[in-house]
């Protein structure tokens, strides 16, 4: 069979020729948080249209933590992060000599949702949320009555993101008071649509995720108005309440981290980040996030051009700070 022999020869030839050098391509490599992904995707789409294919931008979704792992190994130019860089990640970057510039790109509002038929928990205090979610609640707080006397005697079912998610990190920090400290007996899912389904099917269910998922599912779930403490007003999550700083403590800035060396040596990375900061306001709104004040983008752009390295957080999570104040802070590497 002649055709068979030809296939064999072709395979051998190909195997022999693999190993020829790669041509230099202009690639901006990005990975990280699935929360920041829609904004980065929108910016990458527009930027590549603008450059007509001369620069290639790749975006992956490894989660905030997974993204930092790749970033600190030097595999990516930019890391998407839905929370600030943590101590051990700073250490990992220090060991490989990777320096970075921290840039906030938008706000997200963590939204606590309940079933549309739930008429008793339309307003909740942070203390009540803590009572539901703290580690001590595990196996104990299984009924709304046990959270507060004002709630009816109904089983409480919880759903939320899994422990690899930056959303989980921020929620536990803001509500329980310690990052990653949560009860374990809730329905954990990396896919927020699963949480939407879960809450929409059970009158006694409660869950949390980013604002964009609530905006798209207003017919299936209801957002809880959050009271910072007993005496403060109940605030519903929305673009306005995030912008004027009243939706606290659950609104958070989300970031990109840029490899400083890549920004200095690769003009395409520098140009992409500048394009990002100039268009983040419009594009973040378009994909369901809240834009930062115009002044914050100007400050971020100034910080980037001045190559202001390091994080404003020092590896500790921080709840309820203004973005402008963050951008003023001294950076730590």
């Amino acid at each position: 069979m002649e055709s068979n022999k030809r296939i064999w020869l072709g395979a051998l030839a190909l195997a022999g020729l693999i190993g020829t050098a790669q041509a230099q391509q202009k690639i901006v490599a990005i990975d990280g948080s699935s929360t920041v992904y829609p904004i980065t995707e929108a910016v990458a789409e527009e930027y590549q249209k603008l450059k007509k294919g001369a620069v290639k931008v790749t975006v992956g979704i490894s989660g905030t933590g997974g993204g930092f792992k790749k970033f600190c190994r030097g595999e990516t130019d930019i890391s998407d992060a839905s929370r600030p860089i943590l101590k051990q990640e700073m250490e990992a970057c220090r060991q490989t000599g990777i320096e970075y510039i921290e840039l906030p790109v938008a706000y997200d509002a963590l939204t606590v949702v309940i079933n549309p038929k739930n008429d008793w928990a339309e307003e909740m205090t942070v203390a009540e949320l803590k009572k539901m979610w703290e580690p001590a609640a595990q196996g104990v707080v299984d009924n709304w009555k046990k959270v507060s006397e004002r709630f009816p005697d109904r089983p409480l079912k919880l759903a939320g993101p899994g422990a690899d998610s930056g959303t989980f990190d921020y929620f536990t920090e803001a509500v329980v008071g310690k990052s990653k400290s949560s009860r374990g007996d809730y329905m954990a899912s990396e896919d927020d649509n699963v949480i939407v389904q879960f809450v929409s099917r059970d009158v006694g269910a409660l869950g949390y995720f980013g604002l964009a998922y609530y905006t798209e599912n207003k017919d299936k779930v209801k957002a809880v108005k959050i009271k910072k403490d007993e005496n403060s007003p109940a605030v519903a999550p929305s673009v306005e309440t995030v912008n004027n700083g009243t939706y606290q403590p659950l609104s958070r800035p989300i970031f990109i981290y840029v490899n400083a060396k890549a920004a200095q040596e690769k003009p395409e990375v520098r140009e992409f980040v500048e394009f990002y900061l100039q268009n983040a306001a419009k594009l973040s709104k378009e994909v369901g996030y809240v834009d930062l004040p115009a002044k914050a983008y100007e400050m971020a752009l100034r910080n980037f051009k001045a190559m202001k390295k390091g994080t404003a957080f020092g590896g500790e999570p921080d709840v309820g700070v203004k973005v402008e104040e963050l951008l003023e802070r001294e950076g730590k590497l």
Binding site: Y37, T40, V57, T58, V59
Partner: peptide
């Protein structure tokens, strides 16, 4: 092995 999610170009 690191396949990416957003790719808006084709291999050369």
């Amino acid at each position: 092995i690191g396949a990416l999610t957003f790719i808006a170009f084709l291999p050369p």
